[in-house]
């Protein structure tokens, strides 16, 4: 029994130390966001990296999410004779919930994993050590551009996801299921408010921070060799996905 308690205690201490280390990493990175010189070119490259890597997958998942939502919501709303509310139903589901969560999960799988692997490869090939040896802070060159780029790119990616999803819903709801085009959009205007859009924005910003922070951290402190990089990439994707869903619940509960 004492051995079990000791194992649980040691595991807890290890987890607490890792969490503390992750927060120190984040705080140090945040410090360099506000301290010049700013690496604008690297920032633009990383914004392109997040957008470019994820765009196709966002367009595909966004459109099909909207289409599936239209099918399912139409089936439910028809039971209550409220098919006209299909437009606002799709828009609110996407803007408040599905857009930020699904696009964050997609970006994690596409760009986040690539980011963790790239930084991990830089670690094992001593490129990060080379930066330090040149008296250049690796956080400023590798981590800060990614965190800021994610904070800029995520809301834009989510906005694209939402718009594509709404048009996917339009395709099914209006073109296939026969709702009038005017009803679909005009009721959306009546039921979707600025605060709904702000909820989506807050979520996308926080997911951007989570994805860039976790993926950069896992890559930066990767293990040895190809196996170490593979392990840290997997850990980054799994941890990001779990944190996105947990944080989504808490943020949703606060912002509801």
């Amino acid at each position: 029994m004492r051995t079990l308690i000791r194992i649980i205690g040691l595991w807890t201490l290890l987890q607490l130390r890792t969490i503390g280390h992750m927060f120190v990493f984040l705080i140090n990175s945040f410090y360099f966001i506000f301290v010049p010189p700013f690496k604008i070119r690297l920032l633009l490259r990383q914004i392109r990296f997040f957008g470019n890597k994820s765009m196709l997958v966002i367009l595909l998942t966004g459109s099909f999410t909207g289409m599936v939502l239209a099918l399912q919501l139409f089936y439910i709303l028809r039971k209550f004779g409220s098919e006209a509310l299909l437009g606002p139903g799709i828009a609110l589901s996407l803007i408040r919930e599905l857009g930020p969560v699904l696009s964050a999960l997609m970006v994690t799988g596409r760009a986040g994993s690539a980011l963790a692997a790239e930084i991990g490869m830089m670690r094992i090939s001593e490129q990060i050590d080379a930066l330090s040896a040149m008296a250049l802070n690796p956080l400023r060159y590798l981590i800060v551009p990614n965190i800021v780029a994610a904070l800029i790119a995520f809301p834009l990616i989510v906005a694209i996801f939402d718009v594509i999803g709404i048009f996917g819903g339009y395709l099914v709801g209006v073109e296939i299921l026969g709702i009038s085009s005017g009803t679909y959009f005009s009721l959306m205007k009546d039921y979707v408010f600025m605060e709904d859009i702000m909820v989506g924005l807050y979520k996308s910003l926080s997911f951007g921070l989570i994805v860039s922070w976790i993926c950069c951290y896992k890559g930066f402190y990767t293990g040895f060799g190809a196996e170490g990089v593979s392990k840290s990439t997997t850990e980054a994707v799994v941890l990001c996905s779990i944190l996105i869903l947990i944080w989504d619940y808490f943020l949703g509960a606060v912002l509801l």
Binding site: S125, E126, Q127, D129, A130, S132, A133, M134, A135
Partner: peptide, 13 residues
């Protein structure tokens, strides 16, 4: 470190 040059094992390019 500014007065230092390092050639790493794998080049670290």
């Amino acid at each position: 470190r500014e007065r230092l040059g390092v050639l790493f094992q794998g080049g670290a390019l």
